[in-house]
């Protein structure tokens, strides 16, 4: 049964499957994304981000990247959003400064840049040719942990090592920042 389902992907036997999955995930991604941007309450925006991240994980599954989808759920929805929720609960509900944005008069440039980027992206996507057809996935299996680990440890070894350095720097930075906060409250 499992092998039948696997062979079904990409060979066109269940052509509708990817389209339905893509439609659901696209609606979820953009809908929850609008929630992240426009919810006034920080807590609601963070919970809305969970919806976006899970929808993006669905997109990864539609793109035959199950390992990336799992990491997306575990790291993003499981760790990052929980940290956001902790900090939102810690800092509490506080308002913004009264009055307009300090950079208000520059905002028109931001909007112009945004519209330009949107138009450029739309034209680029509409203008691009489709490229060669994607090969059937069950011959190469690019999304498996084995192939990703192989790529990481052979041709992308530098990125792998830099990753460890980035995580080390982030951990040390978090400890230093937390130590400063504790000292600011009169502790050691």
């Amino acid at each position: 049964m499992a092998s039948t389902t696997h062979r079904c992907w990409g060979t066109g036997r269940c052509r509708v499957g990817e389209q339905v999955l893509f439609a659901v995930a696209a609606i979820g991604t953009l809908g929850f994304g609008v929630g992240v941007v426009f919810f006034k309450d920080a807590f609601r925006a963070a919970v809305s981000l969970i919806g976006t991240l899970l929808s993006v994980a669905l997109l990864f599954i539609a793109l035959l990247a199950p390992f990336a989808a799992a990491i997306q759920v575990i790291v993003y929805a499981g760790a990052i959003v929980v940290m956001f929720l902790f900090v939102i609960a810690y800092l509490g509900d506080r308002g913004a400064l009264p009055g307009p944005d300090r950079l208000d008069r520059w905002q028109v440039f931001g909007w112009l840049g945004l519209i330009g980027l949107g138009m450029f992206g739309t034209v680029a996507i509409l203008d691009s040719t489709a490229g060669p057809a994607r090969p059937a996935p069950d011959t190469t299996d690019v999304g498996s942990p084995a192939s990703i680990g192989d790529a990481f440890l052979s041709s992308h070894l530098l990125a792998f090592e830099v990753t460890s350095l980035v995580l080390l720097v982030a951990a040390v930075g978090a400890v230093v920042l937390a130590k400063g906060a504790v000292q600011g409250e009169g502790g050691r």
């Binding site: 790291v75 900090v87 690019v142 192939s147 790529a151 990481f152 980035v166 930075g173 906060a181």
Partner: peptide, 27 residues
């Protein structure tokens, strides 16, 4: 698989950025 490797690196950078960003915000 290079694209997926790149995406995983982006996730690591995002995690590090959130740790430092939230730490700075709290401090």
């Amino acid at each position: 698989p290079s694209g997926q490797v790149f995406a995983l690196v982006v996730m690591v950078v995002a995690a590090a950025e959130v740790v430092i960003g939230l730490g700075l915000t709290v401090a």
